[in-house]
């Protein structure tokens, strides 16, 4: 049995949120640099140069990449041999609140979604997904601050199994087409296939945090990812919607077992400010 203090969890959450908000991953930066070499029109090149310059400014000033500092999503993987001394969820919430105050993040959350829509003023609450890991005495945290320009363009559909591969590809491409320039392209497309309604959405979100440039270990899915990426980039939306061949930097597909009667597909779009950060205790 290993004991982890709740205060350590709180400190790590704060650090991970701020790291994600200020510093873009080198995988995304280099994908954008590659895109800049390939785009030929002035507006598309301008958009990519501005995005890259923005990343330099955010890192050097330690200021948020985007004013929409997002809702904070936390995936926590807790080893079963760990005992947390103190309130675990409260530690995450208070870590997120400290990040909000210290990082000058934006209060982007309302308490009631339909009627009052009154701002919670400290960006709370963070959304927590917790899993227990057997034979493990570590705590691993993945933090994804999620902006809503791209979240709003995401979609889920419960397909019949007969929809097959083509049904999946068309749904992904249509979702990106309908999103147009609203989700701040170039985007990263996280796709979940299988599971139940909620699990499908959850694995799609996790897929967005996969390293850009990494290859799906299953060849069939790897081929599906490249086909989708090619078709999405043929839409011509381009960086910032200014037209061009870089509408998405990557399509990441994740799958899980599902019911004999179904094939849920979730498409979670993330902007070029794809923020995520991981750490462990």
């Amino acid at each position: 049995m290993r004991i982890i203090q709740a205060s350590e969890v709180e400190a790590l959450i704060k650090q991970l949120i701020l790291d994600a908000e200020f510093n873009i991953g080198d995988d995304i930066r280099s994908a954008l640099q590659t895109a800049l070499l390939r785009e030929t029109t002035a507006p598309a090149r301008l958009a990519l140069e501005q995005i890259l310059e923005n990343q330099r400014i955010a890192a050097s000033e330690q200021t948020p990449l985007c004013q929409d500092t997002g809702m904070i999503v936390v995936f926590a993987y807790l080893g079963q041999d760990v005992h947390i001394d103190g309130g675990f969820e409260e530690a995450i919430q208070s870590g997120a609140r400290s990040a909000f105050h210290e990082g000058y993040l934006r209060a982007s959350v309302v308490a009631d979604p339909l009627f009052d829509r009154i701002n919670t003023r400290d960006n709370s609450p963070a959304i927590i997904h917790l899993r227990l890991l057997p034979d493990d005495d570590n705590l691993r945290l993945l933090v994804i601050p999620k902006g809503f320009g791209s979240e709003n363009m995401s979609a889920i559909r419960m397909f019949p199994p007969s929809a097959g591969r083509d049904g999946v590809v068309d749904f992904i491409v249509d979702t990106v087409r309908r999103a147009g320039s609203k989700p701040c392209p170039p985007t990263i497309i996280g796709v979940g296939i299988g599971g139940t309604f909620e699990q499908c959405a959850q694995i799609a979100k996790l897929a967005t945090a996969r390293r850009v440039g990494s290859i799906n270990p299953d060849e069939r899915y790897a081929a599906l990812e490249s086909e989708c990426l090619e078709r999405v980039n043929a839409l011509g939306i381009g960086p910032a919607g200014y037209g061009g061949i870089t509408t998405a930097l990557a399509v990441h597909i994740s799958c899980v077992p599902t019911h004999i009667a179904g094939m849920p597909v979730a498409v979670n779009i993330v902007c070029h400010a794809s923020r995520h950060s991981e750490g462990s205790l």
């Binding site: 310059e53 923005n54 004013q67 701040c184 919607g241």
Partner: peptide
């Protein structure tokens, strides 16, 4: 950022307005 509706585009034509895009996510810049 992003596309506008036909109603907005119609109003822009009728009254002579203009819509500019800036790069979404280039917030610090």
């Amino acid at each position: 950022k992003g596309e506008r509706s036909d109603a907005v585009r119609g109003a822009m034509r009728e009254y002579g307005a203009i819509y500019f895009g800036v790069v979404g996510g280039a917030a610090a810049l």
